[in-house]
Simulated assay, not measured.
Amino acid sequence: MTDDEIESVLSDSHEGSEQELPVIQLCGLVEELSYVNSALKTETEMFEKYYAKLEPRDQRPSRLSEIKMSAADYAQFRGRRRSKSRTGVDRGVGLTVDQKLELVQKELEDTKDDLRHMRANAERDMQHHEAIIEEAEIRWNEVARAVHEFEKDILKAISKKKGSILATQKVMKYIEDTNRRRDNMKEKLRLKNVSLKVQRKKLLSQLRQKEEVGEALHDVDFQQLKIENAQFLETIEARNQELTQLKLSSGNTLQVLNAYKDRAKAEAVNKRLRKQLAEFRAPQVMTYVREKILNGDLEKSIKMWERKVEIAEMSLKGYRKAWNRMKITNEQLQADYLAGN
C-alpha cells in the first residue's frame, strides 16, 4: 500500500470518526491499519539496516524506534499530517518500487552471507567437537584397557596369600612399562611432528617457486604459449581426421575380407560338389532293375509283417479279455465255495 493510500485511509478514518461507523467496519479498518503498520515497520527496519551499513557510526541519526514522543506531540504531529493531506501540500517523496526491490535484494544477499558464515562456523565447531569426542573415546579406551591390565596383573596377585612382595614387584614393573610406553609414544609423536614440519617447509618452498615462476612469465610468453597451443590443436585436429579416415579404411578392408572369406567358402563347397559329381557313376540298367525289384519285395515284406503285428496285437487283446473273464469267474467260484462251507 502506498503513502497516498495510507493518507486516504487515515483521512477516511478521521472523517468517519466524526460520524458513527458500524462495529464491523471499524474492525476491518483497524485490521487494515494494523497490516499497513506492520508492513511499514518492516520496510523501515530494513531501510535503517541498509542506511546503518552505509553511514559511519558517529554520523548516524537516531533511529525512529529510539525517538520518544509524548502523546500531545504525537497528536499534534498527526494533526499536521492530516492538515497537509487535506490542503494538498507537497510531501517528501518515498522510496520507489525499484529502490525497495534493491534494498530487499541487498538484505537477502546479506542474510545469505550471514547464513553461509554461520553454517561454516557451525561445521567448524562440529568438527572440533567431533575431534574432541573421538580423542576422549580413545583416551577412555586406553584407560579402560590400563585398568583391566592392572586388575589382571596386580589385584589378582594381591588377593592371593603371601603375594604382597610379588604384587609390589608387579606394581613397579607395571609403572616402568607404562612410563616406557609413554616415552616411546612421545618419541614417535616428536618424529612425526618433525617430518610434518619438513613436509610443510617443502610444500611452502614449492609454492613459493611456483609463484616466482608465475610472476616471471610475461605477456610475450603467454602469447607464445597461445600460438603453440593453437598449433598443437591444429595438429590434433589433423591427427583426428587421419584417424577417422583410417577407421573408415579399416571398416572397408574388413568388409572386403569378409567377402573374400565367404567367396572362399563357396568355392570350397563348389569344388567338393564338383568332385562328387565327377566321381559319380551311373549304375547299369540290369543292376538298377534288380535293385528296384528287391526294394519292392522288401516293401511288401514290411507291409506283411506290419499286418501280422496288428493281427497278433488283436489276438493278444482277445486273450487278455478271456483271461480277465476267467479270473473273475474263478474269484466268484471261490467266493461261493467259501460261502457254502
Rank of each mutant, 00 (worst) to 15 (best):
E234N: 10
Q284E: 13
L254W: 03
S249C: 04
V269N: 03
E267S: 01
T253Q: 04
I236A: 11
K265P: 00
K265E: 10
L233P: 04
E279M: 15
Q255R: 12
K275F: 02
E279Q: 13
L254T: 05
I236E: 03
Q255A: 15
A264N: 13
E237G: 13
N240C: 08
L243M: 15
D262R: 11
I236S: 13
L273V: 06
K271I: 01
K275L: 05
A266E: 09
N258V: 00
L257Y: 05
V256N: 07
R239Y: 00
E242I: 07
I236M: 14
L243W: 15
K265Y: 00
N258T: 11
Y260W: 07
L277V: 13
L254R: 15
L243C: 15
G251D: 08
A268T: 02
E267R: 14
N270F: 06
V269C: 03
K271D: 00
Q276V: 06
K265H: 02
N252K: 03
L254C: 03
T253D: 07
V285T: 11
Q241P: 00
L246G: 02
A282R: 12
A266C: 10
R274E: 01
L248M: 11
N240S: 15
A259G: 14
Q284N: 08
V285L: 11
L246V: 06
E242N: 13
Q245M: 10
A264P: 07
E237L: 11
N252S: 12
L246C: 04
A282F: 11
Q245Y: 15
A278D: 03
R281P: 06
A282L: 09
N258G: 06
E237Q: 08
N270C: 04
L248R: 10
P283H: 01
E242M: 11
L254G: 01
N258K: 14
K271F: 02
G251N: 09
V256Y: 11
N252Y: 07
L248E: 09
K275H: 06
